[in-house]
């Protein structure tokens, strides 16, 4: 398993507005945002993912940097 470690990257994920704490997540290189959300047990329909502050398509490959998962709650 240690062999695979060098194929992993670590990203900082912040889920807002839920918990404003940041968590480090280890993922395999080539993981998409969609996969990352699955790993975090978050439904992709209920969030917008911001990469370094910009909205990003969920089928894109995750690269290192700051990731914000914005939960969209129904106001009204």
């Amino acid at each position: 398993m240690d062999m695979n470690r060098k194929n992993d990257i670590t990203v900082d994920v912040k889920i807002v507005p839920d918990d404003n704490s940041e968590q480090s997540v280890n993922i395999e290189k080539g993981t998409t945002y969609e996969d990352l959300l699955k790993k975090l047990d978050i439904n992709e329909e209920s969030v917008i993912v911001l990469k370094d502050g910009n909205a990003t398509p969920l089928d894109g490959v995750v690269e290192s940097g700051k990731i914000q998962v914005l939960k969209i709650t129904s106001g009204g």
């Binding site: 969209i72 709650t73 129904s74 009204g76």
Partner: peptide, 13 residues
């Protein structure tokens, strides 16, 4: 709303 930078509240009832 985000890309148009509209002032809005994201809190939940």
């Amino acid at each position: 709303a985000i890309v148009n930078e509209l002032p809005m509240d994201f809190s939940e009832c």
